[in-house]
């Protein structure tokens, strides 16, 4: 799981152009939206694309998003359980 979390942090930094940020700057449990990284709705769409492109996961229920994208850790948990590749 630790390896997946680091990989995911690097992917998030890359896809969201988080300039000057390193994986260690993102706490596993820090909120991705609002207070934490301060991501916006377009970033949320990019994360949905990232999950599909890199892990083969299609989010069918939009209501799931809030819980899945709460933090890097919750994303990694969901990916671990649902990844296609």
């Amino acid at each position: 799981m630790e390896e997946l979390i680091v990989k995911l942090k690097n992917e998030i930094i890359d896809v969201l152009n988080l300039e000057g940020m390193a994986p260690e700057d993102i706490a596993d449990d820090a909120p991705l939206f609002g207070e934490g990284l301060g991501l916006d709705s377009i970033d949320a769409l990019e994360l949905i694309v990232l999950m599909e492109k890199n892990y083969g996961i299609k989010l069918k229920d939009p209501n799931e998003g809030k819980a899945i994208f709460r933090s890097v850790k919750t994303m990694a948990d969901y990916i671990e359980k649902n990844r296609k590749f």
Binding site: L16, L45, E46, V49, K53
Partner: peptide, 11 residues
């Protein structure tokens, strides 16, 4: 080819 249009580029 894989059809993954980027929302952040689209805007």
């Amino acid at each position: 080819e894989a059809y993954f249009p980027s929302p952040s580029v689209f805007v």
